[in-house]
Amino acid sequence: MVIEKRWKTWVFFYIPLAVFVVGTLFPFYWMLITAIRPDAELYRSWRAATNTPFWTLQPTLEHFRDLMAKTTFPRWLWNTFFIAVASTLISLFCGLLAGYALARLRFPMAGTLGTSIFVTYLVPPTLLFIPLADIIRNFQLGNTPWALILTYPTFLIPFCTWLLMGYFKTIPKELEECARIDGATRFGAMTRIIFPIAVPGILSAGIFAFTLSWNEFIYALVFLSSPERKTVPVGVVSELIRGDIYFWGQLMAGALLGSIPVALVYSFFVEYYVTGLTGSVKG
């Protein structure tokens, strides 16, 4: 064991760690405190003697109430959820099949295809949104959830494929060979033996894909136009700011509520998420 003096532990460990924790979490605290602060306190001169920025004595849920009642926020939540789940399912379906084929089957061009899928994984959405907008328009998909449900998989599938391919490679191939001898077809061995074993990998990929699509912004911004069709990130940006006026209380309430679903999913599946995250770069 490495023995260190106490003060060294403090200077080199506890204090930096505390700074990291505070720095990381402060913006979330700030979101919360802003969301429950009455407007009167919110816009107070910063030099005012009564200014107590870090807490409030009159917490209020008014901003949340306004958000739910006076805007289409609940609708956005539902849209985001629906789109995220649908695109995640599509991506998992494609990623499972493709990942299996790339990990297990021998066929001509396997290497080239694997590389191409990996390269598409690295193509950022901001490179493609302008032509895609045109294509979406041509397909008559503009301003429908399908515009997103079909395009989100473009960055989710490569990721899912990559992650699941790595997972499949860790499963001994004798398992499916044995299943095939036991009477299963190739396809049956895949669905009855390999997929059930890969459930942790599938969960990781699914959770990660869900958070990615929940957070997506630019496609949603470009492809959707009517307020009631929007997702949370786009709705908050474009509908909660009227003209030049920022309703910070509502904005922060929206930011908070829009973050909670992913944060919840994340907190239930931290380990799977971390596996997905680290797997997404390891391959």
């Binding site: 913006p27 979330f28 957070n215 990130p233 786009v234 908050v236 930011a255 973050s259 994340y266 907190s267």
Partner: peptide, 20 residues
């Protein structure tokens, strides 16, 4: 687990907090 929060929360939303 809490250190990963900035990464999983929608960037647009957390950036609003920063803007504020």
């Amino acid at each position: 687990a809490s250190m990963l929060l900035p990464f999983i929360v929608p960037t647009v939303l957390s950036t609003f907090a920063w803007r504020w």
